[in-house]
Amino acid sequence: MSEALPIARSPLRAAGPVETRSGWEVSALRSDAALRLADRTPMAKVLVRAPGGGQVAARLGVTNGSARRDEHGTLIVGSGPGDWLLLGAPGCAAELAARVEVEDDGLVSVLDYTHGRALMRLTGPAAAQTLAKLCPIDLSDRHTPDHTAFRSSVAQVATDVVRDDVDGTASYLLHCERSSGQHLFDALYDAGGEFGIEPDGFAEP
């Protein structure tokens, strides 16, 4: 049976012209606005659960509340007690999963979460001010420096937030269950209105 290769689609409506990259239909827009909101849903997302003090935890190397980028460029997020989230390039979920599959003392589960979550990136000097309209967490450098991760309510949706600055500019990855993605995007976009927010297309990573 010959099928056209299936096209994956993000839950976020693409702004402007679209293109296909890595099997995903994504926005081809490029914005250089001071505040940008971009769909990052195509990135591979892997959920890992393992005992807190075990080998998997040691290998992942971050604890709940912080994130690091490993030698492969994967962002490893300590997203909860005994929970990690791995974010990598589109299509690499299986590879990410394979990297953490080690024996451990307790139950370990690794789950490709790519299609279950919406992921977006908010970047710009006013990103914190924008997010502060929707999220009750203190986003100051003092409390939430680069590579801090937390889960809280953003626009009334349980959202994983990772501060992951880009070239010294404040930037946040926001991540929620897929069906609420458009709601979260719309709320962020509305909040960023006074700072001249623009949608940005998909560019890796």
Binding site: R9, P11, L134, V157, S179, H183, A187, A191
Partner: peptide
């Protein structure tokens, strides 16, 4: 304020 009542959509909503 801006009311943020979450709305959920299926992938096939469009």
């Amino acid at each position: 304020g801006r009311t943020h009542e979450p709305v959920r959509h299926s992938p096939m909503q469009s």
